[in-house]
Design a binder for these strands. Structure first.
Lengths: 241, 241
DNA sequence: TTATAATTTAATTTG
DNA sequence: CAAATTAAATTATT
């Protein structure tokens, strides 16, 4: 059963073993790996791997002389040694992407959480401000005094009284659920389209250039009138995913 | 020159070509690819790839019957066809991951920008509130209506004295620059350690389990006493990366 | 020219 | 079959 394995990649080739004296069991030797699957063809033996790994630990980029020596010791071609080191170096780096993704995701979640806090606090501030304002207005109506210096009273930052705060800001948002994004199959790309100074951020999602699949399942348009909409302080949109 | 290529992966093996009548040029046939490098061994021909790609486009998971037929048409083993489709599927998926990563990154950047806006607005709100408060106090305590701007009206320092504002919040942050993260070589992992309700977020970065390399170059501890620290209103930490 | 990083590929292994 | 590896090949860079 499954005797098909004997033809590695071409039907019209035949391999002949050539006895190598003593030193080693070649990669193609079917009896070199007694334990595992025992019919390896391409694989290096555990011994070879162990030696290579050991050397790699010490120096991931050995001199060609050392490679030569290793080749002799392990009964492999210098070329194979070189390639192994190449691949080994590449491998140690290739886990990186997934790791980076997770790191980014964690950062994103943390930032989102932080964003939430800030938003809530913002809401609270707004309410307090509103309260104080109406208070002031009342007292102002009663009293004749004129302590209301609506002009800047020398604070460190422009208090843009009508600029930043009372403007009906709208932040249009399009976000994706990132919790299990790695397992999704959509093909969208995102593009930051506009980010004018400070307060307005528009993130627009577009179909990928290949235009193969739609991705409406996991994408969602989110719009929050974040400065005035009181519902936005109780609904945490990033928890919907 | 460079005649080394003739020994594909083991010194002690010899391949013999067995003439295959008519039907096809096998993968190992050195003359199948007239144009490119002309001494391919393992690679499928452009024709074969084209056919496979065409079929894949229509159906990425064809029936074994179709695979069989393809095998006949292309002069490959059914097993090779199956493997090719497997690999092809895997490849199209890994592209997806990269795409998702970029999407996440864009979202992250957008959120960070948004976060900035919110923070600025927060600061502004705080200032306004502070101002109104001192106004109120003045009018209450001193009804002679003096516009005596005593105390701290000159700086940003807010003495938030009410509600959730004076909780001396501290948000500890550890963030990474994501601009070119895919090309970095660190091996850190991140872990969200604490995220209690609402306002406190701690993100702790730890060394990877392999413990091979430190990553202090790109990681940075950022601490912002975001409700009291006036520096946070002028320094945009996310621009430091 | 060699050497290498980076990418690709066919194939294998494991679950 | 998916997912992870692997040895090798290929391309680009120097």
């Amino acid at each position: 059963m499954l005797a098909r394995r004997e033809q590695p990649h071409a039907a019209a080739t035949v391999k002949l073993e050539v006895g190598l004296p003593g030193l080693d069991l070649d990669t193609f030797n079917p009896v070199q790996n007694i334990r595992p699957s025992s019919k390896n063809k391409r694989r290096f033996s555990d011994e070879q791997i162990k030696s290579l790994e050991f050397m790699f630990e010490n120096d991931s980029r050995p001199e060609s002389q050392i490679k030569q020596q290793l080749a002799n010791e392990l009964g492999l071609q210098p070329r194979q040694i070189a390639i192994w080191f190449q691949n080994r170096r590449a491998r140690s780096k290739s886990k990186q992407i997934e790791r980076d993704y997770n790191i980014l995701k964690e950062s994103y979640d943390a930032l989102a959480s932080n964003y939430e806090s800030l938003k809530r606090e913002n809401q609270s501030l707004r309410i307090q401000l509103e309260k104080l304002k109406s208070q002031n207005e009342k007292e102002h109506g009663n009293k004749t005094c004129e302590s209301n210096r609506s002009g800047n009273s020398g604070d460190c930052e422009s208090q843009n009284r009508s600029g930043m705060l009372d403007t009906d800001e709208k932040i249009t948002f399009l976000f994706e659920g990132h919790d299990h994004m790695l397992s999704t199959g959509n093909t969208s790309t995102s593009k930051k389209v506009e980010n004018t100074d400070g307060d307005r951020v528009v993130l627009e999602m577009m179909e990928g250039t290949d235009g193969s699949l739609t991705s409406s399942e996991k994408w969602c348009s989110f719009e929050s009138n974040c400065f005035l909409d009181e519902s936005s302080c109780s609904s945490n949109w990033w928890e919907y995913w």
